[in-house]
Design a protein around this nucleic acid. Sequence first.
DNA 1: CTAGGTGCAAAAGGTTTGCGGTTAA
DNA 2: TTAACCGCAAACCTTTTGCACCTAG
Lengths: 145, 145
Amino acid sequence: MNPVENKQFERELGERLATSGFRFTSQRRQVYDVLLQKLDHPTTEDVFIRAKRKMPDISHATVYNCLDALVQCGLVRKVQLERGATRFCPNMEEHAHYYCDECGEVFDVSLPAERPSVPQPRGFKVDHYEIAVHGLCADCAGKKK
Amino acid sequence: MNPVENKQFERELGERLATSGFRFTSQRRQVYDVLLQKLDHPTTEDVFIRAKRKMPDISHATVYNCLDALVQCGLVRKVQLERGATRFCPNMEEHAHYYCDECGEVFDVSLPAERPSVPQPRGFKVDHYEIAVHGLCADCAGKKK
DNA sequence: CTAGGTGCAAAAGGTTTGCGGTTAA
DNA sequence: TTAACCGCAAACCTTTTGCACCTAG
């Protein structure tokens, strides 16, 4: 990231945090940065390891805290794809996750603007949709044959 | 369940298990029975507690094992709705889950036969879809106002 | 008879919590 | 200045594993 992008990035993140009543901290900046560096839906543990490379003193609890703050201020989505750890992605567009049950890789696929009309329980107030498609990616499907 | 239904139920379960190479055991029967008794998407812990009422010696590990077997032979679906424990439902029709983030209640909604054409990653071999809608149920939405 | 399943207990993995010290606003 | 946040460590909850005994096929 060049110095100009950098400044821009910091201001936007700071504003977003402030709007939701959170403070801007170097740890939150680092955690968000990690998520943007590689859009591979890392787990909290992954984020912890990557953040630690640049910020050796950061703790597990802080990473959990930071991810929570980022989710609450709408910069990051929490995704539950398998039994294991929660994963995170900074892609806030409506999209589905194609998840390979073999290698664990995740592919984002944008959803068409038109949604099919699905009946819904009376009075239910929708917050967000989560659409996951499980299966095998091209590589793993090939190897299995 | 009357004696006739009972026999029927047992034979079908036994066949399904056998087809996938599993043995028919009283524990698996009990666990499946628990899931059919109340279609409220219980967690493994819930299933354990309910099964224990009729079968006091059943263990946690066995409940996990039984649920796994039932999932593998296509009688039960595994659902991941929140951070917490995995939930299970014996409804094998294609359906979406409306999940109340306040009280945790789950509502099944059948999906229309026609699916919108969503683009998908090249070569991806789909196994199953998981569609969860998060929000507030009518009761909780009312209380929050 | 015997491979697979069960029960138990212990461990592993992920997440949350409590607390004293630090820092952004 | 001070409420919010951080790091640490311990607790907690869910799931997995190893092993001796048991049982369906």
